[in-house]
């Protein structure tokens, strides 16, 4: 199992860098992941997206459609792509501590 070390903390991740034990996720982990993958400082808007994705995943066992992210956070689609340059999947979902979604992402 690959590991990822950020600021002295070691995380078990899959090959794509998605967290292997989603239950250890917390705000601190999100901050570390965001710093590591180039998303940078997390703003209020980032948090809105991350928290919504996380909540949706905890309740429904899957990442939300980007439409839902927009509707629940009040952000526009293009804003989401700007906030997370790696996109909602490899960017936002990864920071929110979700496992990697299937498909072309």
């Amino acid at each position: 199992m690959p590991e990822k070390e950020i600021e002295g903390r070691i995380f078990e991740v899959d090959g794509d860098g998605f967290l292997q034990n989603p239950e250890i996720w917390n705000d601190e982990v999100a901050r570390l992941f965001a710093g590591e993958d180039g998303t940078g400082e997390l703003s209020e808007d980032h948090w809105k997206v991350i928290r919504f994705i996380r909540e949706h995943w905890e309740n429904n066992d899957m990442a939300p459609m980007v439409r839902k992210i927009c509707q629940h956070t009040g952000l526009r689609l293009r804003q989401i792509y700007e906030l997370f340059p790696m996109g909602p999947a490899r960017g936002a979902c990864k920071i929110a501590g979700l496992p990697k979604p299937d498909g072309c992402v």
Binding site: A63, M65, V66, R67, L77, G87, P88, A89, P101, G103, C104, V105
Partner: peptide, 11 residues
């Protein structure tokens, strides 16, 4: 469609 479109990249 590629499901990736409706899910994450609908532009």
């Amino acid at each position: 469609l590629n499901p990736r479109e409706p899910k994450f990249f609908p532009l």
